[in-house]
Write a protein that binds this DNA or RNA. Sequence first.
DNA 1: TGTAGAACTGAACACGCGTAAAAACTTGCA
DNA 2: TGCAAGTTTTTACGCGTGTTCAGTTCTACA
Lengths: 352, 352
Amino acid sequence: MTTPGAGQGKRRIDTMEELAVAIGVSRPTLSRYFQDPERVSRSSRARIEQGLEQVEYIPNFFATRMNRKTTGIIGVIIPYLNDLFFSKLLEAIERAAMEAGYTVITQCSHFDPLIEARAAETLMSMSVDGALVAPLGNHSDLKVHDRLRARLPFVLVDSRPDNMLDVEFVGTNHMQSTGLAVEYLCRVGAPPVFLAMPRVSFNAMARERAYLAKMEELGHEPRIIGTEPVEPGWLFEEHGQAVLDREFAAGRLIDASVLCVNDRIAIGALRAAATHGLEPGARRNGGLRIMGHDDYPLCPFLTPTLTTVAQDVEAIGRASVQQLVNTIRGEKTPDEQRVKLIDGEIKARESA
Amino acid sequence: MTTPGAGQGKRRIDTMEELAVAIGVSRPTLSRYFQDPERVSRSSRARIEQGLEQVEYIPNFFATRMNRKTTGIIGVIIPYLNDLFFSKLLEAIERAAMEAGYTVITQCSHFDPLIEARAAETLMSMSVDGALVAPLGNHSDLKVHDRLRARLPFVLVDSRPDNMLDVEFVGTNHMQSTGLAVEYLCRVGAPPVFLAMPRVSFNAMARERAYLAKMEELGHEPRIIGTEPVEPGWLFEEHGQAVLDREFAAGRLIDASVLCVNDRIAIGALRAAATHGLEPGARRNGGLRIMGHDDYPLCPFLTPTLTTVAQDVEAIGRASVQQLVNTIRGEKTPDEQRVKLIDGEIKARESA
DNA sequence: TGTAGAACTGAACACGCGTAAAAACTTGCA
DNA sequence: TGCAAGTTTTTACGCGTGTTCAGTTCTACA
């Protein structure tokens, strides 16, 4: 039972030609109306709008995009979605793009360079106005990015391969954010050990470097654990848990400060602590402390609540769209603004 | 620095016409080749494939889809992505659709019926071969679904409005899954209280009903909490935490079995327990127990690990694509198979 | 009432490719 | 060598809309 008058009985019209005769306006006028209602006189506009209420007509997406100089589409490639960071990022991007008047076509790589390559082809075949790409850690086929970049406005998001330092990029300022975390941990307790992960991600490596730099700056001895290779199909959480489980089982690190490369690793770390009867953050200025990075939405609901450093995902999404739109509109980005690094912010909670 | 011979110098070709003269084959032959390489003779195929390595050419997505009788596109509408259930579902759908040879266009409603309506328009304007829609709880504009359904093969996923019981649908068998949870809790302890949420979701309401039915069947007195309205922008976790916090603070339910309508509510519930010094599941056959529903990927890493009933997201995704593809191919679905409910499975962990 | 300028109409071409039909060409086989 | 069957080429039209252009109608204002 739908609302009465819902338009079930509206006559369906498939082409602009038919529509033109149906409401008594010329097709070029309709064409202009659909691109921007302001481009026709008020009287025609009223007439068209009234006519559209009597019939069901939807312009053909392909036919319209095929002929316009600009498609009004922004293509987005995301490495995977089973992660609240990327889903939040995608949401921010879609919102910003919509506000800027663009249609978003999202393609997900699902951890697979081949799918990523196919996604790039799809975007090119659709003549998108620009592409926003969050690469697959360091598994991406860089030729694919190069081809995209050579063809259309292109902005990297979140993660940046080492050899693409000259590309437009928006991401977290790991030097600042991880540095902040190290400082925070040093201020209220022992200098942290860094719980890393296998070197499959540029961001993870950037955070490692930031950790090393800040530890050196503060005059502490750094220590990094967890970089050993793992089996395919591994989960971040499992890795964090496994590494700390080994340590705790051997009686090591039970009084340490542990800075995890990201929150999902930290969640595994918390789990390892719990299984060993340890309570991260329970002793105010000492004892075991665990800290993450990202401000995963669940952090405030974990036990203990997870102290972390928040990435401003919303800002990253908005800024990347802004940067892309500027490029599309032909506004030359000054060299010093081609890379935009967004600062993080400490979220002090119970675990550290 | 890209790999040498990466194709930086390949001549770029924009139309099939140019390509035809470039490699010395006729355009219709090329057209057939791109639709299915098997449709041209082996000699032509070899020649074309060799030619394609010398140049850079990508068929125009719009021009190809505009003329084919079938676009090979499946449109997917998802209510929101900030939830690991939907991101897993989307992944399963995309994988299954890819295997079936379809291109997937995903549109996200972002909690907003207006955006959902626009997404539906986009899909119709693209003449997708079929649509897979996961509605916005009960906030969807049902006219939108009706229009889609009237135009093209249409399958609902995950959640089904009360007045669309005759539509093709694939989702969890809440009667079975929630029933299983109730039975499980009754078997090893006190009959459960049901921690629900405001009535904004058909699934949540279906689980409430399933809870009531099973409790009656087992001869226990049901009790449902947490259905009071909340402020806009509320989070599932916050709600679960707030409701149980009130109860625990008043000394109530501290020895109860609590079945939560979903895992995110349960995560909030675990948090409430922790803040009150309670340990769900610590006493084997009694005391406070908390159970969820969905098998959120993080369940095994929470403290305590969360007992829940797993939805077979992978199966839901696959089955929905299968159902849609059958409809697209014109295979009449027998009435009794128009609704496919997938059973859940208990994941016994520490919390209950 | 006349007129400049804006807005519209009709016709035509373009976009890149699918598709059909007929003619020309291969290939395999006797 | 001849012939049938399978391929390919040629040619032409169609898809639904963008876009242009010359000609027409409308509007505002004097």
